[in-house]
Design a protein around this nucleic acid. Structure first.
Lengths: 194, 194, 194, 194
DNA sequence: TATGAATGAGGTTTCATTCAT
DNA sequence: GATGAATGAAACCTCATTCAT
């Protein structure tokens, strides 16, 4: 299994840095290789092609994040608390890794439709996690009966994504994580909630 | 003024179709020209370069949309109604022009950072329109006192953008506009509003 | 006859200015037309194509110069005096028309082989004039018996051309005409002449 | 160091042939590559861009020539002998490499001003070599006291250049090297020297 | 495993020339 | 005669991927 060899992660981390520093279209395979300290050809011993690096990058980083978040919210009783924790985790993940934030919010979106579809597959798990929280909320009476889950999920994900992208575009110069509570409340109660 | 000549719009519309059908990176200038029924060189009598076509495309389509929406919401008294109309307009615009939907939600996002910055300039007006609605809502007591305008704006825009992108990625096969009322309500009252 | 119409010369003069100011490859037909104050298409009523402008330019300017020089040296008795006058005329012509100097010495040489061959045809008359002086010198005993005319002609033309080109490349900032006497003497007597 | 690899010279030699046979503007990179027996992209492993090939070509060929000539004339005592050898070498170099003759005398002159300036830098060394001979001649009394070095240098270079260009334009069909002695004498003593 | 030299397809833009008005 | 909008051919360079060592 290639994923267990050190160079696999070495190359993925190099890709994050190379893309964050040079931009998606300027992060040539040779640059990633140089950043990883391996030869160009070595890349192809661990990844099928360039796209495969990017998908793997997303899978590794996002997969870990989803698993951790899924686990951590289990200790919370209410859906509101779970949502709050999810938002907090999401913000913290990207605040702690500025390079990763640039890559996932800005650079990777310049990829073609095909790659983005594969990225969406990875995201599906995250969306399922959100759905789970929402269902919990409906079941225990926290959320409106007959809540449109799909809509609510898109509202959560779209809001967080937009917030993070704006924050990255503003050079990450304000404290994103500090807004976690506010946005959670706004998602729960809306503009005219209370 | 080039913008008043018929070929200017002819080329922009051809670009929308060419990009929607071939994808951003496969929409070569020669394809746009062929679609517009002009010679390759003719493009350059109306646009500085390829990027200029894309920026102009966005300005023309989005600019018109923002102006129309801004005008139409003026007849509404409550912020809630205004918001509902904005959402409705946004969904209708893209539902009525499937090619444009693909181009703005998927293809144009593959452009480089420079182009995206220029696109953001155009979007800024739309965001200001949203802010206006929110301020109205706060002033007339519809929305919470001390509403975080920036956050609320990001919630609205992020939610709509996510909804539309998902709809486009699902080949626009369900009725997006039908969700306008539901999403408006959810934005106003949240998941646990009422 | 097109050559008698005012626009013919108007376009040629515009070409000299356009080429001198923009360089050979940046002097597009449209720039020449603008400089001449006519439409692009009008150029083609007076010239077969762009190359024809340049050949005509050379013919007009050089033709006049050769005729004038041929006439003026007839009053001189000795070949040495004739040569001195030819050199003086050549230098004066270009000193008096800095644009023309740039065009003939630098820019027109960037043209392709075909055009340069046609330019050489025009120059042939000038070279014949030089030959005439040389023959006169041999006949009246001023120059060595058995002087290699072809060689001598190439020495004269090559020397003048090199001097002028260097002068133009140095932005014409020194007095070229002041060297006429010195170079004439050097051509006549060499480095170790007297 | 790329210059030591065989393909560096292989490409330069291919460029000489391609330009000589097709003309400056018709010697596309793909033609040079084909002539060199490498892929188009390989060119760019050894040269920054097309212009870089041409500059390197001139530097390699002319640089070698100047160095060799500088060395060979050192064994000569008189300036006259040195000049004779320089002329002989110059003629022989181009007589022995007909392609190179066409390239340096005709084709490379069609390059833009920027490239020509870089070519001039290389030529500067050759002109310095000529100056050295002239100074030697003045110092040892062979040449006139107070000889205008700059003028004399322009006379030598201009004469040789004109002779070679004419010879190339006449398809190199006569024996250029045979004129070396004659032209040397004429430079030394002029038309009316002896 | 690891290397890195070599490959070669593919696209934006310019500009001389035409021709309907 | 004069216009100027429209034409369309043509080329440099990049970079993901391969494969002999």
């Amino acid at each position: 299994m290639k994923k267990n060899k050190p160079k696999y992660h070495q190359i993925i981390d190099a890709a994050v840095v190379a893309i964050a520093e040079n931009g998606y279209h300027q992060a040539q395979v040779s640059k990633i290789a140089r950043q990883a300290g391996v030869a160009d050809g070595t890349i192809y011993l661990y990844f099928k092609n360039k796209e495969d690096i990017l998908i793997s990058l997303f899978q590794e980083k996002m997969g870990t994040f989803v698993a951790k978040t899924a686990e951590s919210i289990q200790v919370k009783q209410t859906a509101a608390e779970q949502l709050q924790l999810l938002v907090q985790n999401h913000f913290t993940l990207l605040t702690d890794d500025p390079h990763l934030a640039v890559v996932t919010q800005l650079e990777l979106r310049q990829s073609n439709k095909e790659l983005r579809l594969k990225i969406n597959e990875v995201l599906k798990e995250y969306l399922l996690l959100i759905d789970q929280i929402l269902k919990t909320g409906v079941e225990n009476g926290e959320f409106n009966d007959g809540l449109n889950i799909r809509l609510a999920r898109q509202m959560i994900f779209g809001t967080l994504d937009e917030m993070i992208t704006t924050w990255v575009m503003n050079d990450q110069k304000y404290d994103l994580a500090a807004s976690a509570d506010d946005v959670t409340k706004m998602l729960l109660h809306g503009f005219s909630g209370k």
